[in-house]
Design a protein around this nucleic acid. Structure first.
Lengths: 197, 197
DNA sequence: CGTTGATTTCAACGCTCGTTGAGTTTCGGA
DNA sequence: TCCGAAACTCAACGAGCGTTGAAATCAACG
Protein backbone atom coordinates (compact mmCIF):
# COMPACT_ATOMS: atom_id res chain seq x y z
CA UNK A 1 0.00 0.00 0.00
CA UNK A 2 2.01 2.98 -1.25
CA UNK A 3 1.76 6.23 0.62
CA UNK A 4 3.27 8.25 -2.18
CA UNK A 5 2.88 8.54 -5.94
CA UNK A 6 -0.09 8.76 -8.23
CA UNK A 7 -3.36 7.25 -7.01
CA UNK A 8 -5.01 4.50 -9.02
CA UNK A 9 -8.22 5.17 -10.89
CA UNK A 10 -10.05 8.34 -11.86
CA UNK A 11 -9.50 11.33 -9.64
CA UNK A 12 -11.24 14.65 -9.19
CA UNK A 13 -8.60 16.12 -6.96
CA UNK A 14 -8.42 19.44 -8.73
CA UNK A 15 -12.07 20.20 -8.18
CA UNK A 16 -11.88 18.91 -4.62
CA UNK A 17 -9.14 21.41 -3.91
CA UNK A 18 -11.09 24.25 -5.48
CA UNK A 19 -14.17 23.40 -3.44
CA UNK A 20 -12.20 23.22 -0.22
CA UNK A 21 -10.47 26.48 -1.10
CA UNK A 22 -13.74 28.30 -1.76
CA UNK A 23 -15.15 27.21 1.55
CA UNK A 24 -11.98 28.05 3.45
CA UNK A 25 -11.67 31.50 1.88
CA UNK A 26 -15.33 32.18 2.59
CA UNK A 27 -15.17 31.09 6.21
CA UNK A 28 -11.85 32.61 7.18
CA UNK A 29 -10.89 35.15 4.55
CA UNK A 30 -7.77 35.15 2.44
CA UNK A 31 -5.21 35.47 5.19
CA UNK A 32 -6.53 33.05 7.77
CA UNK A 33 -7.33 30.40 5.21
CA UNK A 34 -4.22 28.23 5.05
CA UNK A 35 -3.09 26.09 2.16
CA UNK A 36 -2.25 23.34 4.58
CA UNK A 37 -5.77 23.25 5.93
CA UNK A 38 -7.29 23.46 2.46
CA UNK A 39 -5.11 20.53 1.43
CA UNK A 40 -6.12 18.50 4.46
CA UNK A 41 -9.77 19.24 3.87
CA UNK A 42 -9.36 18.04 0.28
CA UNK A 43 -7.53 14.92 1.44
CA UNK A 44 -4.30 15.93 -0.23
CA UNK A 45 -0.76 17.08 0.44
CA UNK A 46 -0.16 20.86 0.55
CA UNK A 47 2.43 20.51 -2.16
CA UNK A 48 -0.19 19.23 -4.56
CA UNK A 49 -2.14 22.45 -4.20
CA UNK A 50 0.95 24.30 -5.20
CA UNK A 51 1.50 21.87 -8.05
CA UNK A 52 -1.90 22.65 -9.53
CA UNK A 53 -2.39 26.31 -8.81
CA UNK A 54 0.96 27.83 -7.98
CA UNK A 55 1.09 30.47 -5.27
CA UNK A 56 -1.72 31.23 -2.85
CA UNK A 57 -2.88 34.29 -4.76
CA UNK A 58 -3.44 32.24 -7.89
CA UNK A 59 -5.41 29.67 -5.94
CA UNK A 60 -7.59 32.48 -4.65
CA UNK A 61 -8.15 33.80 -8.15
CA UNK A 62 -8.94 30.31 -9.44
CA UNK A 63 -11.41 29.78 -6.62
CA UNK A 64 -13.19 33.07 -7.33
CA UNK A 65 -13.18 32.89 -11.09
CA UNK A 66 -15.93 30.53 -12.08
CA UNK A 67 -18.62 30.89 -9.45
CA UNK A 68 -18.94 34.64 -9.44
CA UNK A 69 -20.58 35.82 -12.59
CA UNK A 70 -23.46 38.11 -11.83
CA UNK A 71 -24.09 38.88 -15.47
CA UNK A 72 -27.38 37.08 -15.96
CA UNK A 73 -28.80 38.01 -12.58
CA UNK A 74 -28.07 41.67 -13.24
CA UNK A 75 -29.69 41.52 -16.64
CA UNK A 76 -32.87 40.07 -15.21
CA UNK A 77 -33.00 42.63 -12.44
CA UNK A 78 -32.29 45.52 -14.73
CA UNK A 79 -34.52 44.37 -17.58
CA UNK A 80 -37.69 45.74 -16.02
CA UNK A 81 -36.35 49.28 -15.98
CA UNK A 82 -36.37 51.68 -13.10
CA UNK A 83 -39.92 50.88 -12.07
CA UNK A 84 -39.85 48.46 -9.15
CA UNK A 85 -36.14 47.85 -9.49
CA UNK A 86 -35.56 48.23 -5.75
CA UNK A 87 -37.71 45.26 -4.93
CA UNK A 88 -36.32 43.09 -7.74
CA UNK A 89 -32.75 43.91 -6.80
CA UNK A 90 -33.08 43.26 -3.09
CA UNK A 91 -35.05 40.06 -3.65
CA UNK A 92 -32.45 38.70 -6.09
CA UNK A 93 -29.67 39.80 -3.82
CA UNK A 94 -31.00 38.11 -0.70
CA UNK A 95 -31.89 34.96 -2.65
CA UNK A 96 -28.38 34.62 -3.99
CA UNK A 97 -26.72 35.32 -0.68
CA UNK A 98 -28.94 32.90 1.21
CA UNK A 99 -27.97 30.18 -1.28
CA UNK A 100 -24.69 28.25 -1.62
CA UNK A 101 -23.69 30.70 -4.34
CA UNK A 102 -23.20 33.24 -1.55
CA UNK A 103 -20.12 31.37 -0.32
CA UNK A 104 -17.46 32.69 -2.72
CA UNK A 105 -18.94 36.15 -2.49
CA UNK A 106 -18.58 36.04 1.26
CA UNK A 107 -14.98 35.01 0.67
CA UNK A 108 -14.35 38.18 -1.31
CA UNK A 109 -15.91 40.41 1.31
CA UNK A 110 -14.17 38.71 4.24
CA UNK A 111 -10.84 38.90 2.47
CA UNK A 112 -11.29 42.45 1.30
CA UNK A 113 -11.40 43.90 4.78
CA UNK A 114 -8.02 42.72 5.97
CA UNK A 115 -6.19 42.15 2.72
CA UNK A 116 -5.13 45.02 0.55
CA UNK A 117 -5.27 43.55 -2.88
CA UNK A 118 -8.42 41.65 -2.03
CA UNK A 119 -9.98 45.01 -1.34
CA UNK A 120 -8.69 46.23 -4.67
CA UNK A 121 -10.14 43.13 -6.33
CA UNK A 122 -13.51 43.64 -4.70
CA UNK A 123 -13.51 47.30 -5.71
CA UNK A 124 -12.67 46.44 -9.30
CA UNK A 125 -15.27 43.70 -9.28
CA UNK A 126 -18.01 45.90 -7.91
CA UNK A 127 -17.31 48.78 -10.23
CA UNK A 128 -16.63 46.98 -13.50
CA UNK A 129 -18.83 43.91 -13.14
CA UNK A 130 -21.80 45.37 -11.31
CA UNK A 131 -22.09 49.11 -11.05
CA UNK A 132 -21.02 49.85 -14.58
CA UNK A 133 -23.56 47.43 -16.00
CA UNK A 134 -26.32 48.75 -13.80
CA UNK A 135 -25.60 52.33 -14.74
CA UNK A 136 -25.36 51.47 -18.40
CA UNK A 137 -28.49 49.39 -18.60
CA UNK A 138 -30.58 51.84 -16.61
CA UNK A 139 -29.31 54.79 -18.62
CA UNK A 140 -28.74 56.89 -15.54
CA UNK A 141 -27.59 60.47 -15.78
CA UNK A 142 -23.79 60.19 -16.10
CA UNK A 143 -23.41 62.94 -13.53
CA UNK A 144 -25.46 61.20 -10.89
CA UNK A 145 -25.11 57.54 -11.93
CA UNK A 146 -21.87 56.67 -10.16
CA UNK A 147 -22.98 58.27 -6.91
CA UNK A 148 -26.36 56.57 -7.06
CA UNK A 149 -24.73 53.24 -7.79
CA UNK A 150 -22.20 53.50 -4.99
CA UNK A 151 -24.96 54.43 -2.57
CA UNK A 152 -26.74 51.25 -3.59
CA UNK A 153 -23.52 49.34 -3.10
CA UNK A 154 -23.08 50.83 0.36
CA UNK A 155 -26.54 49.72 1.53
CA UNK A 156 -26.10 46.25 0.08
CA UNK A 157 -22.65 45.82 1.57
CA UNK A 158 -24.06 46.93 4.90
CA UNK A 159 -26.75 44.32 4.54
CA UNK A 160 -24.06 41.72 3.92
CA UNK A 161 -22.09 42.80 6.94
CA UNK A 162 -25.07 42.95 9.28
CA UNK A 163 -26.88 39.83 8.11
CA UNK A 164 -24.09 37.46 7.04
CA UNK A 165 -20.85 38.53 8.71
CA UNK A 166 -21.62 40.17 12.03
CA UNK A 167 -24.99 38.43 12.27
CA UNK A 168 -26.72 41.34 13.88
CA UNK A 169 -30.15 40.49 15.18
CA UNK A 170 -32.96 40.70 14.29
CA UNK A 171 -31.69 41.37 10.78
CA UNK A 172 -29.68 38.15 10.63
CA UNK A 173 -32.69 35.88 11.13
CA UNK A 174 -35.35 38.03 9.50
CA UNK A 175 -37.25 36.30 6.68
CA UNK A 176 -36.25 37.41 3.18
CA UNK A 177 -39.58 39.14 2.68
CA UNK A 178 -38.91 41.43 5.60
CA UNK A 179 -35.59 42.42 4.13
CA UNK A 180 -37.15 43.05 0.77
CA UNK A 181 -39.98 45.10 2.22
CA UNK A 182 -37.75 47.30 4.34
CA UNK A 183 -34.64 47.75 2.21
CA UNK A 184 -36.17 47.89 -1.27
CA UNK A 185 -37.51 51.43 -0.85
CA UNK A 186 -34.02 52.63 0.05
CA UNK A 187 -32.54 51.11 -3.09
CA UNK A 188 -35.39 52.48 -5.15
CA UNK A 189 -34.79 55.98 -3.88
CA UNK A 190 -31.03 55.75 -4.43
CA UNK A 191 -31.66 54.80 -8.04
CA UNK A 192 -34.70 56.77 -9.08
CA UNK A 193 -35.58 59.25 -6.34
CA UNK A 194 -34.30 62.74 -5.78
CA UNK A 195 -30.83 62.46 -4.30
CA UNK A 196 -31.27 64.92 -1.50
CA UNK A 197 -34.53 64.15 0.15
CA UNK B 1 25.92 53.18 26.23
CA UNK B 2 23.78 50.33 27.52
CA UNK B 3 21.53 48.47 25.12
CA UNK B 4 19.43 46.91 27.83
CA UNK B 5 17.84 47.97 31.09
CA UNK B 6 15.76 50.94 32.14
CA UNK B 7 16.10 54.12 30.09
CA UNK B 8 17.17 57.32 31.82
CA UNK B 9 14.68 60.07 32.39
CA UNK B 10 10.92 60.28 32.12
CA UNK B 11 9.23 57.85 29.78
CA UNK B 12 5.78 57.58 28.26
CA UNK B 13 6.32 54.18 26.80
CA UNK B 14 2.98 52.79 27.89
CA UNK B 15 1.02 55.40 25.98
CA UNK B 16 3.35 55.09 23.00
CA UNK B 17 2.57 51.39 22.83
CA UNK B 18 -1.16 52.01 23.06
CA UNK B 19 -1.01 54.58 20.28
CA UNK B 20 0.99 52.28 18.04
CA UNK B 21 -1.39 49.43 18.84
CA UNK B 22 -4.47 51.46 17.98
CA UNK B 23 -3.02 52.45 14.64
CA UNK B 24 -1.83 48.94 13.84
CA UNK B 25 -5.16 47.35 14.74
CA UNK B 26 -6.98 49.96 12.69
CA UNK B 27 -4.79 49.55 9.63
CA UNK B 28 -4.44 45.78 9.61
CA UNK B 29 -7.08 44.32 11.87
CA UNK B 30 -6.52 42.15 14.90
CA UNK B 31 -4.89 39.21 13.21
CA UNK B 32 -2.48 40.92 10.86
CA UNK B 33 -1.38 43.47 13.42
CA UNK B 34 1.66 41.92 15.06
CA UNK B 35 3.01 42.65 18.50
CA UNK B 36 6.49 42.74 17.10
CA UNK B 37 5.56 45.44 14.62
CA UNK B 38 3.64 47.41 17.22
CA UNK B 39 6.69 47.24 19.46
CA UNK B 40 9.01 48.39 16.69
CA UNK B 41 6.68 51.23 15.83
CA UNK B 42 6.72 52.30 19.49
CA UNK B 43 10.51 52.02 19.61
CA UNK B 44 10.42 49.21 22.10
CA UNK B 45 11.10 45.50 22.53
CA UNK B 46 8.17 43.12 21.95
CA UNK B 47 8.63 41.68 25.41
CA UNK B 48 7.85 45.06 26.93
CA UNK B 49 4.44 45.05 25.32
CA UNK B 50 3.77 41.76 26.98
CA UNK B 51 5.13 43.08 30.25
CA UNK B 52 2.64 45.93 30.28
CA UNK B 53 -0.47 44.41 28.75
CA UNK B 54 -0.14 40.64 28.86
CA UNK B 55 -1.46 38.64 25.95
CA UNK B 56 -2.45 40.12 22.60
CA UNK B 57 -6.17 40.02 23.38
CA UNK B 58 -5.68 42.18 26.44
CA UNK B 59 -3.65 44.66 24.45
CA UNK B 60 -6.50 44.87 21.96
CA UNK B 61 -9.01 45.46 24.74
CA UNK B 62 -6.79 48.10 26.31
CA UNK B 63 -6.40 49.84 22.95
CA UNK B 64 -10.16 49.90 22.37
CA UNK B 65 -11.24 50.80 25.87
CA UNK B 66 -10.74 54.50 26.26
CA UNK B 67 -11.23 56.01 22.84
CA UNK B 68 -14.54 54.41 21.99
CA UNK B 69 -17.27 55.90 24.06
CA UNK B 70 -20.13 57.08 21.92
CA UNK B 71 -22.26 57.99 24.90
CA UNK B 72 -22.23 61.78 24.60
CA UNK B 73 -22.45 61.81 20.82
CA UNK B 74 -25.49 59.57 20.93
CA UNK B 75 -27.18 61.72 23.52
CA UNK B 76 -26.75 64.82 21.40
CA UNK B 77 -28.04 63.11 18.31
CA UNK B 78 -30.99 61.59 20.05
CA UNK B 79 -31.86 64.62 22.11
CA UNK B 80 -33.78 66.36 19.34
CA UNK B 81 -36.24 63.50 19.03
CA UNK B 82 -37.32 61.72 15.89
CA UNK B 83 -37.70 64.90 13.88
CA UNK B 84 -34.63 65.40 11.71
CA UNK B 85 -32.72 62.63 13.45
CA UNK B 86 -31.55 61.17 10.14
CA UNK B 87 -29.60 64.27 9.27
CA UNK B 88 -28.18 64.73 12.77
CA UNK B 89 -27.12 61.09 12.96
CA UNK B 90 -25.41 60.93 9.58
CA UNK B 91 -23.68 64.26 10.08
CA UNK B 92 -22.33 63.24 13.47
CA UNK B 93 -21.36 59.85 12.11
CA UNK B 94 -19.38 61.16 9.16
CA UNK B 95 -17.74 63.83 11.27
CA UNK B 96 -16.51 61.30 13.78
CA UNK B 97 -15.31 58.85 11.16
CA UNK B 98 -13.50 61.50 9.16
CA UNK B 99 -11.63 62.54 12.31
CA UNK B 100 -8.77 60.77 14.11
CA UNK B 101 -11.36 59.28 16.45
CA UNK B 102 -12.38 57.05 13.58
CA UNK B 103 -9.16 55.08 13.85
CA UNK B 104 -10.00 52.70 16.69
CA UNK B 105 -13.48 52.23 15.32
CA UNK B 106 -12.00 51.14 12.02
CA UNK B 107 -9.90 48.72 14.03
CA UNK B 108 -13.01 47.08 15.44
CA UNK B 109 -14.64 46.75 12.04
CA UNK B 110 -11.54 45.45 10.31
CA UNK B 111 -10.94 42.94 13.05
CA UNK B 112 -14.56 41.84 13.25
CA UNK B 113 -14.62 40.45 9.77
CA UNK B 114 -11.84 37.94 10.10
CA UNK B 115 -11.76 37.33 13.81
CA UNK B 116 -14.53 35.52 15.60
CA UNK B 117 -14.48 37.13 18.97
CA UNK B 118 -13.85 40.54 17.48
CA UNK B 119 -17.11 40.06 15.61
CA UNK B 120 -18.76 39.10 18.86
CA UNK B 121 -17.27 42.21 20.48
CA UNK B 122 -18.49 44.47 17.72
CA UNK B 123 -21.95 42.91 17.88
CA UNK B 124 -22.11 43.39 21.64
CA UNK B 125 -20.81 46.91 21.30
CA UNK B 126 -23.30 47.88 18.62
CA UNK B 127 -26.28 46.37 20.38
CA UNK B 128 -25.61 47.36 23.97
CA UNK B 129 -23.73 50.63 23.53
CA UNK B 130 -25.53 52.08 20.53
CA UNK B 131 -28.74 50.46 19.40
CA UNK B 132 -30.15 49.92 22.87
CA UNK B 133 -29.58 53.56 23.80
CA UNK B 134 -31.06 54.80 20.56
CA UNK B 135 -34.13 52.63 20.93
CA UNK B 136 -34.55 53.59 24.55
CA UNK B 137 -34.11 57.30 24.08
CA UNK B 138 -36.34 57.49 21.05
CA UNK B 139 -39.05 55.41 22.70
CA UNK B 140 -39.55 53.26 19.64
CA UNK B 141 -42.23 50.60 19.51
CA UNK B 142 -40.56 47.57 21.18
CA UNK B 143 -41.87 45.36 18.39
CA UNK B 144 -40.30 47.40 15.62
CA UNK B 145 -37.43 49.08 17.44
CA UNK B 146 -34.77 46.38 17.11
CA UNK B 147 -35.47 45.88 13.42
CA UNK B 148 -35.42 49.60 12.76
CA UNK B 149 -32.19 49.98 14.68
CA UNK B 150 -30.46 47.11 12.92
CA UNK B 151 -31.51 48.53 9.56
CA UNK B 152 -29.87 51.78 10.55
CA UNK B 153 -26.78 49.85 11.60
CA UNK B 154 -26.69 48.05 8.27
CA UNK B 155 -26.73 51.28 6.25
CA UNK B 156 -24.11 52.87 8.46
CA UNK B 157 -21.86 49.83 8.34
CA UNK B 158 -22.24 49.80 4.58
CA UNK B 159 -21.20 53.44 4.53
CA UNK B 160 -18.13 52.52 6.56
CA UNK B 161 -17.23 49.70 4.22
CA UNK B 162 -17.74 51.68 1.03
CA UNK B 163 -16.21 54.96 2.16
CA UNK B 164 -13.46 53.96 4.57
CA UNK B 165 -12.49 50.34 3.93
CA UNK B 166 -13.06 49.53 0.27
CA UNK B 167 -12.84 53.18 -0.72
CA UNK B 168 -15.45 52.91 -3.40
CA UNK B 169 -15.65 55.99 -5.58
CA UNK B 170 -17.26 58.46 -5.78
CA UNK B 171 -18.52 57.77 -2.27
CA UNK B 172 -15.04 57.64 -0.77
CA UNK B 173 -14.13 61.20 -1.79
CA UNK B 174 -17.57 62.75 -1.64
CA UNK B 175 -17.83 65.78 0.65
CA UNK B 176 -19.57 65.14 3.96
CA UNK B 177 -22.54 67.24 2.94
CA UNK B 178 -23.24 64.95 0.00
CA UNK B 179 -23.25 61.95 2.28
CA UNK B 180 -25.56 63.68 4.70
CA UNK B 181 -27.94 64.78 1.99
CA UNK B 182 -28.21 61.38 0.35
CA UNK B 183 -28.06 58.98 3.26
CA UNK B 184 -29.97 60.92 5.91
CA UNK B 185 -33.38 60.26 4.32
CA UNK B 186 -32.70 56.54 4.46
CA UNK B 187 -31.89 56.66 8.15
CA UNK B 188 -34.89 58.87 8.77
CA UNK B 189 -37.20 56.38 7.09
CA UNK B 190 -35.69 53.42 8.92
CA UNK B 191 -36.37 55.17 12.22
CA UNK B 192 -39.61 57.00 11.71
CA UNK B 193 -41.12 55.98 8.40
CA UNK B 194 -43.43 53.10 7.60
CA UNK B 195 -41.30 49.97 7.49
CA UNK B 196 -42.60 48.55 4.25
CA UNK B 197 -42.73 51.33 1.77
C1' DC C 1 24.89 54.78 50.11
C1' DG C 2 22.46 50.51 49.65
C1' DT C 3 18.50 48.09 48.53
C1' DT C 4 14.18 47.26 46.34
C1' DG C 5 11.29 47.49 42.57
C1' DA C 6 10.00 49.21 38.06
C1' DT C 7 11.59 49.44 33.34
C1' DT C 8 13.72 47.54 29.46
C1' DT C 9 16.25 44.34 26.42
C1' DC C 10 18.09 39.74 24.91
C1' DA C 11 17.87 35.21 23.46
C1' DA C 12 15.24 31.57 22.73
C1' DC C 13 11.23 28.22 22.51
C1' DG C 14 7.52 26.21 19.90
C1' DC C 15 4.26 26.98 16.58
C1' DT C 16 2.24 27.73 11.85
C1' DC C 17 2.78 29.22 7.52
C1' DG C 18 3.96 29.23 2.16
C1' DT C 19 6.98 27.24 -0.70
C1' DT C 20 10.49 24.04 -2.78
C1' DG C 21 12.86 19.98 -4.71
C1' DA C 22 13.36 15.41 -4.91
C1' DG C 23 11.37 11.14 -5.09
C1' DT C 24 7.47 7.54 -6.03
C1' DT C 25 3.56 5.75 -8.34
C1' DT C 26 0.23 5.35 -12.11
C1' DC C 27 -1.66 6.51 -16.68
C1' DG C 28 -1.71 6.58 -21.64
C1' DG C 29 0.09 6.80 -26.14
C1' DA C 30 3.72 4.91 -29.36
C1' DT D 1 5.71 -3.30 -23.71
C1' DC D 2 8.19 0.72 -22.89
C1' DC D 3 8.62 5.42 -21.63
C1' DG D 4 7.47 10.11 -20.88
C1' DA D 5 4.34 12.77 -18.50
C1' DA D 6 1.05 13.48 -15.05
C1' DA D 7 -0.34 12.86 -10.23
C1' DC D 8 1.04 12.72 -5.72
C1' DT D 9 3.80 12.66 -1.20
C1' DC D 10 7.80 13.55 1.94
C1' DA D 11 10.91 16.20 4.25
C1' DA D 12 12.71 20.33 4.82
C1' DC D 13 13.75 25.39 4.52
C1' DG D 14 13.16 30.06 6.08
C1' DA D 15 10.30 33.39 7.80
C1' DG D 16 7.13 35.36 11.02
C1' DC D 17 4.40 34.91 14.95
C1' DG D 18 3.16 35.14 20.37
C1' DT D 19 5.21 34.26 24.39
C1' DT D 20 8.67 33.37 28.19
C1' DG D 21 12.50 33.72 31.68
C1' DA D 22 16.49 35.75 32.78
C1' DA D 23 19.45 39.52 32.98
C1' DA D 24 20.65 44.48 32.82
C1' DT D 25 19.85 49.16 33.98
C1' DC D 26 17.83 53.02 36.30
C1' DA D 27 14.69 55.54 39.80
C1' DA D 28 13.30 56.20 44.44
C1' DC D 29 13.23 55.71 49.13
C1' DG D 30 15.37 54.65 53.60
Amino acid sequence: MPRTGRRPGYSDTREAILTAARQAFAERGYDKASIRQIATSAGVDPALVHHYFGAKEQLFLAAMEAPIDPGKAIEQVVAGGLDGIGERLVRTFVTVWDSPAGTPAAALVRSAVSHDWSARMLREFITTQILRRVIGNLELDPNEGPLRASLVASQLMGLIMARYIIKLEPLASAPPETIVATVAPTIQRYLSGPLDQ
